[in-house]
Design a protein around this nucleic acid. Structure first.
Lengths: 186, 186
DNA sequence: TGGCTAAGTAAACGGTGGTTTACATGATGT
DNA sequence: ACATCATGTAAACCACCGTTTACTTAGCCA
């Protein structure tokens, strides 16, 4: 006899989490405007109306989805002496991280509402903490360089793939990137 | 007496050009999905149906709009000894260039169809010629670095503006960028 | 066991999108 | 002047979107 599943069929927390996870995946793949509420809920196996029940609107679902990704992406616990290679290792992981907020940011930027939300969250939960971590002297500039470099790399790895940034990145390219990132903390 | 305008009220070429120009402006500002055919034709002062008459579809209008921008953006006639500063001057021009294809590329990348078109055009009319200009040795890698750096800079100048890349960019940041670009040709 | 409430569903609503169709009108050549 | 065709227009079409509403059903407690 099979074990009975002790979990009830109806579980608000589980359903909410399933929608949020499906939203993160969908928004990261298709952005804001091109991701429908019905796409998300179909992937989560629930009814479209539940987005409004649990999150209020598609807009607020996006905000929570991106916020969680940005939170998880903060890299301020990396040891400074190995900053460059650690960052490059993360950004060029063969198994694309589910937690990289950059694709979602790039793809969602066309919609004015999503862009406003993204701009606010990006600065509040990522750029500013990162700038403080870099230190009071030129911290903001370093955070900006970090973001620009990481974004450019992500664009040509995931959006418009170029061989030079592909799976088997040439040693020279990798070293250039490591040195560029490491120079921000030295 | 005022001179009579010798141009007829109806001029297919002029109308077509007006639609194309309005499309470049709109796609650069709002991407593909968030730009409506009615938005474009309203800006051009013509009827929405003319998009289909002159371009076949919104899709093919996008293709022609981006293709023209990518063509005009090729920077292979820059003297190599001043490559870095020239590129940075172009990318950080106070008056944002109407011809920079990067915002359009970034904003349009969410829609699968627009992304496919962008990917094809980007490589055929920009990346590959640029790689040849850099030379047979590591040309592709240099073109990739150029694109990544330029894209990251554009993202944080136009999409999610950061002070460090703003109008009055610190001398240090500017010099870092110039050196990075110049290193690609030295 | 029975009923009450949270959880989930189905269906519709108003708005908007790209596109097509049928029609009106200005330009041109005889 | 008039016929003809390119050019432009108005309106409708059909599909899809986010959201709301009315309803059903499962879970839980008395």
């Amino acid at each position: 006899m099979a074990e009975v599943d002790p979990r009830p069929q109806r579980d608000a927390q589980r359903t909410r989490a399933a929608i949020l996870a499906a939203a993160q995946e969908a928004f990261s793949r298709s952005g804001y405007s091109d991701t429908g509420v019905r796409d998300i809920t179909a992937a989560a196996g629930v009814n479209p109306a539940l987005v409004n029940r649990y999150f209020g609107s598609k807009e607020r679902l996006y905000e929570e989805a991106l916020g969680a990704l940005l939170d998880a992406a903060l890299i301020t616990d990396i040891p400074r002496e190995r900053f460059g290679e650690t960052v490059v290792a993360i950004l060029t992981a063969t198994q694309r991280s589910q937690l990289n907020p950059l694709p979602m940011m790039m793809l969602a930027s066309a919609d004015p509402t999503a862009r406003e939300i993204t701009d606010r969250l990006l600065k509040a939960v990522f750029i500013e903490p990162l700038a403080r971590w870099f230190g009071p002297e030129r911290g903001a500039g370093k955070a900006a360089f970090f973001s620009a470099l990481a974004s450019g790399l992500t664009v040509y790895r995931e959006l418009y793939p170029l061989d030079a940034f592909g799976a088997q990145m040439p040693e020279e390219a990798r070293n250039w990137l490591i040195a560029a990132f490491q120079s921000l903390v030295d």
